[in-house]
Design a protein around this nucleic acid. Structure first.
Lengths: 249, 249
DNA sequence: AGGACCCTTCGGTGACGGCCGAACGGTCGC
DNA sequence: GCGACCGTTCGGCCGTCACCGAAGGGTCCT
């Protein structure tokens, strides 16, 4: 905002400046790439992020300083490493909804290598989205929960009393009473369909890890459904092999 | 992203580009100012927005073209006027949460004139926030509804059955069954406290206008509580003069 | 028809900011 | 302690983009 027309505006809301300053944090491809990578909910080192985005370490440092100063990321220094995480669930959800609203890269991201294709498929099948489950698995669980009457969508997503009982039966503890919505819908970028997020989505995901239903594939966001997980979903959600098909292959 | 390190990245997620491109739309003070102004949910003409932001008409045109092309705004041409609105409630909510997360303009916006001070007070007392009520009035109604057991916050905001009955009793019709959350919490920028948004918040606000409880002050986002509105709030919500105090003065 | 008004197009200007590489201070491991 | 490694600081480069004013097309009112 230079060029300067009026020497000093009466104050047509200094707020516009604030919003713009914050939005600018995500308005750079490199910084945006950092945030998207960090959507997996884990902490990355500065150099990991730099490599991921394809920029020099010095460039990454500058960007990370901005993001931390702006409150988008938080850092933790350990020895010679600088670990970075998204500042919190609110931030993660903001990045998610921003990404969901952004027009999809028209260019249908070309896949250049077999391993990249495999990685992509694994991500499409099942992955974590910050702290809950996404991908075909996340969508399948969500739709099945709806079919079983555990979730309702009319007039906003909500957990039914049967849903509450089902969670209790599983032994899933939902941290209650804070400001975070219990259930929230999160749009899946591969499936283009909503899946379960919010406190319940996070608790369910944590339970799935804890009970060995799913395991991480390497150090990516992708997860694999274990045999135990397969059985558990059939037992507790009465999921058919058919609904699970896109997930197991 | 120039400077070019690798000639052509394997594809470290072209997604970063998309997110950045979208975020850039809000990353300019002028464009951000436009969006904040449009948060009142009404359509503004291009020149109104230009004057509001203190830029030349030609500059405004450029910005508006970008925002429309990016899907943030929608336009409607009428004669020699170009009317602009936010594209939808999703967009409005995104702008809201982005603005809520942006660090407040450290500079405590200096108020230069008496009329500006009056305007500011009017806005702080009661205003529309896209399509629902904000300001002291919005917050007061929300807290009272909570006190009366119409709303609960535990494990995510929700309407109780008493709340549903209360709305029906008022004759408020909540458009159900679409993807929009029935109740949603929206952070107030003056009060720094949450108030009721979502489909119910919008319906309640519409009802308040329709029943003459509130009227717009001039052509701003500010609204005034009428005598009828005052009585209605006491009758239907059992609101005391005390809880209404910050609103009526 | 004429004039006022709303908006758009176009050229030109200047600042901001993202990028790199090289040099440097910490921290770890052998 | 000596190398390997992670991160930071500093200059310098250059593209992008927000801005304006002047000129021009449309639309409405009288």
């Amino acid at each position: 905002m230079h060029g300067m027309s009026a020497p000093d505006m009466p104050s047509p809301s200094v707020r516009g400046q604030d919003l713009a300053a914050f939005a600018r944090l995500l308005a750079d491809p490199t910084r945006a790439g950092f945030c998207l990578a960090l959507l997996d909910g884990r902490a990355w080192t500065a150099s990991e992020l730099a490599r991921h985005a394809g920029v020099a370490a010095s460039t990454a440092t500058e960007h990370l300083n901005l993001l931390v100063a702006g409150g988008v990321l938080v850092q933790e220094r350990q020895g010679r490493h600088r670990y970075l995480r998204l500042a919190g669930t609110e931030t993660a959800e903001l990045v998610e909804s921003l990404a969901a609203m952004a027009p999809r890269g028209s260019v249908l991201t070309p896949v250049r290598s077999l391993s990249a294709a495999g990685r992509r498929n694994a991500l499409a099948r099942a992955r974590t989205c910050y702290d809950h489950l996404a991908g075909a698995l996340g969508v399948a669980i969500t739709t099945t929960m709806t079919d079983r009457g555990l979730l309702v969508w009319e007039g906003g997503l909500a957990l039914t009393s049967r849903g509450t009982a089902w969670l209790a039966d599983l032994g899933v503890v939902v941290p209650a009473a804070n400001r975070r919505p219990a259930v929230r819908s999160c749009l899946d970028w591969t499936e283009r369909r909503p899946h379960l997020a919010g406190a319940v989505g996070a608790a369910l995901c944590a339970h799935a890890f804890g009970a060995g239903w799913i395991v991480r594939i390497g150090s990516t966001r992708a997860v694999a459904l274990t045999a135990a997980g397969h059985d558990a979903l059939r037992a507790h959600l009465d999921m058919t092999d058919q609904t699970l098909a896109p997930v197991v292959r």
